[in-house]
Nucleic acid binder design. Structure first.
Lengths: 239, 239, 239, 239
DNA sequence: AATGAATGAGACTTCATTCAT
DNA sequence: TATGAATGAAGTCTCATTCAT
């Protein structure tokens, strides 16, 4: 099971190639093609290995929690050696931060696709729907995501990443709500920023509850009821 | 099992002197009575020491997370020896479970007091309000509480306790909503059980967000908006 | 093979007992004798174990150098578990620092005994002689000592200890030379401080050479020649 | 094998450009000549790269000690890749041995220049002076030199090199002293070989002390006092 | 020739747990 | 009962070394 998240990995690859380009070593000028092809291949191998390690890390986080992961197991689960994860990410914190970013990027990608072409209240609903839709990719990523969110309380390396998530999420919701208010589709007597935070936090709480007890949480029903709750609560009342 | 003292760091000496004071109360009496009183004193000491250890554990969980706690530090933070926590609770898992129970008991006590004499929609609102009110005791317990909730995903010892929390919370909310529906104060076209789960999870999500970023979360405002959101959404519409 | 160095270990023991005394635990007042005897026994065991670990560390340093020592091996060589050295000294740096101090203390003790009742030029000669005499306790300690001295260049934890050694050595030599000058036994046209540094450093260089190549260094002959060299060089010329 | 460049951190680009400049010297010629020139260029590049790696290694040894050096860092510090040092020298031991030899060669070169045209006691003094003069090239090489000397105790790869150093140094001093005795400039009642060892070891001890604590060691003053000490001690007394 | 990807061994360090006092 | 001594397992991290490109 691999991460798609081409952004995160490509960025890494780009960085490497950039560095390699700047550091042209002697003897490479004669056969630039060969050199470039060689490096690309190395870089690709590395990118794929990193991707696999991140995916394996997510699995392990989902299974054992943030503190249950070990660098060695992440490497092995990815099909490599015990030392590889440490070799790439230097420390457990960095590994976790990279994993968090990868998941976040993937979620963002999904959300953007779902929101394409929506606006106003419909866009807000689509945003909420996208949160529930994430669960369709399976519980592993969601468990890892939730674990990262909570782990931020004690791991500075994660706190940074999570702060970004929060900013992104809050501004996204806030913008949508504000524009729906302007469009007259959402009642103007609410505070967009506060509502955004409430919705974001509530969705996370629901997802957390789901990953903790999938059998006890009927997610489809919750999705329906939650969206009804929100629309009844925020929709502009008919005058 | 409740926390007795808010400040876990009181010098142990104080505790001893308190106990000594209690011991010297009356005059001299017959043998059996002395034995009984002595035993009571021992039991009291033990209870107080346990209580302090649990409070210290909660502090440490709040600071460092479930996995950051160590038995030795729990004992020391409580003002006792490195070995005491292990001596009382045998293992780290049992210590954590006991701590979780203690926090839950305390929260329950608070809630019951707040709900006394309410009914229907008002009782639902009071229940929600009680959740926010918990935060007034400070962030330490709430952080520990959230940590326990999330830790349940990977620690069987906690899973049991958290399952109880969930049952309690869901039934409490569910009962209140159902009775409010019966009373005609809440619209009947919602599913009480699902709404209960949503509210419970949403509140937890909000609390989690708060403990993660207290400065970024205006809890008072959220309380107002959230209660408005709920009442608009659930209240029986005027026909 | 144990360190004698009662000072270092006693200090540790005292500290522990002092702490224990201050931290009187409840229930201990009734049988102070038992309590004290218990603690003393524990403390003694601990002191002996520490002493053995330090001696084992010195052996290992002599064999493999500062960086070749491992905490685990120090514990095992001392006849305990792999974890003990780490348990006592927390870190490799602290272990090495403690070992350095122990050796220094032992050397100081020896020197003081040898100097008892000497003065003037004779005292200077006795000081030099004491340096050579150290070698009689075997090469292990001397190798470890030299290793510590040089290791100070890269290990802050050792640098501190070695700075003390240097101060001690320089002031000792300096005082002796200065008083011999006053007594008219050493020519006054030399700088006592500089000569002290030269003698101290030269002796260390000789010892280093010896531990590096014991077969190639005839220490007895060097002792004679060196003392002749110094006395010819420093003695007050007959007018 | 000598160090070519004092500043190891010159950009590699400079080296390349220098080589390129050398390559463009004359005009176009016949095939074989071109081949030869090319090969010479390759060899030169290699020699320069090795030299830089060795210089970088000396820097790192000076900073972090023998065990603190890593192959990767040696390559990078020299301005090349992480793999180069390992590629050239196969193993860390060989790298260190090569570095030791390079430093020794450089020191020997300096000494020979200083001794040119001296004889007898003056030559002995010049030899001593040369030791102090080494310090003028900066502390880096001297620190590395001392580190190598001490490292020989535990690293077979260095032991061989250091044995050579010792032989060279002892024979050099021994020869000079013996010839000065023959010339009647040094008293005949000393043992040349032993004195040689003493002087050599003493100088090393002084240098070690200096690199450990440059601020606390007034090298100029020590040089003066030490040479005075030696000349007073060894010079043939006027009959 | 040169780079850097990958491995695996080993050290430090931290604790839960057991046990002696 | 309470303390803390001692063990040993595990995890993080760092590198020397090998190997593919």
């Amino acid at each position: 099971m691999l991460f798609v998240c081409e952004q995160a990995n490509n960025m890494r690859v780009d960085a490497e190639m950039g560095a390699a380009g700047a550091q042209k070593r002697p003897g490479a000028e004669a056969e630039p093609d060969v050199a470039i092809r060689r490096r690309r291949t190395q870089a690709e191998r590395r990118a794929e290995a990193e991707s696999r390690v991140l995916a394996a890390t997510a699995e392990l986080v989902a299974e054992k929690g943030i503190d249950g992961v070990t660098l060695a197991e992440a490497g092995e689960r990815a099909g490599y050696s015990r030392g590889l994860a440490g070799h790439y990410f230097r420390s457990k914190d960095e590994l976790l931060a990279a994993m968090a970013e990868a998941i976040h990027d993937e979620f963002n990608l999904q959300r953007r696709e779902r929101l394409r072409g929506t606006a106003g209240l419909a866009r807000l609903m689509a945003t909420i729907d996208a949160s529930f839709a994430r669960t369709s990719v399976g519980m592993v990523k969601m468990r890892a995501y939730i674990a990262v969110l909570m782990g931020a309380a004690h791991k500075p390396a994660l706190a940074e990443a999570v702060a970004t998530f929060n900013r992104d999420s809050a501004t996204e919701f806030g913008r949508v709500i504000a524009s729906a208010i302007e469009a007259g589709e959402i009642r103007p007597d609410i505070d967009a920023r506060t509502q955004a935070l409430i919705l974001s936090a509530a969705l996370r709480g629901i997802m957390a509850q789901w990953v903790l007890d999938p059998a006890g949480v009927d997610l489809a029903r919750i999705r329906t009821e939650f969206m009804g709750l929100v629309s009844r609560s925020l929709a502009q009342p008919r005058s």
